[in-house]
Amino acid sequence: MKPIEAKNINVYYGDNHVLKDIDITIKENTVTAFIGPSGCGKSTFLRTLNRMNDYIDSFRKKGKIYIDGKDIYDKKVRVEELRRKVGMVFQKPNPFPKSIFENVAYGLKIHGIKSKYEINDTVEKSLKQAALWNEVKDKLDKPALSLSGGQQQRLCIARTLAVKPSIILMDEPASALDPISTAKIEELIFELKEKYTIVIVTHNMQQASRISDRTAFFYLGELVEYGKTSELFTNPRNKQTENYITGRFG
């Protein structure tokens, strides 16, 4: 089974051609890192995978993306269902201005789960999975905004896990955090890949090499190189990749 398969993806914002002929297949239960300089299209591509670009008026796309074998841009696909399956964690922690509990329970409620028992149980499991349970179990009704930045981001991950996705997209999830919080998030990603397929956009090449199994290097809207992380970092096939990972531009 191939969880994510993109064929010939071209994306335009108005007249701007921001992604060019992207072909990529992402494997199950792996961590795939997207790297590349700012504006190279890696975040845009990540967002086409759960159709978060739909709300941008000037967005146009050509090509096909299949998730679990289904074309996600097909008219019959319900975007809400897709996003439940393909969760997303954002660059800056963005908890809702509600309690910790309500944040995690939100996704369950919008998807119509009413059983108190089920909600409580899932909230606890999700917070445990996100390695946050021990820190917050006594203050679940406290505002989420009272947590530290790193805790907020793990809360956002727990919130995503609560709706039981199979794929998690992460858009530079640690870029707004301090080194200790970053280490915790990385550890968490490493544990999560047993159960989930994870795609992470990062600016930080050490991070990519630490946590990912495979890495894709984007440059000027093109997928320049894609392969096993260990090979891509030690023995890049492409000159541009080499220049980027050795820090000659960025």
Binding site: R78, E80, E81, I110, H111, G112
Partner: peptide, 9 residues
């Protein structure tokens, strides 16, 4: 999943 249809309606 009819739930999602209801939400959309």
């Amino acid at each position: 999943m009819s739930n999602i249809q209801r939400n959309r309606n």
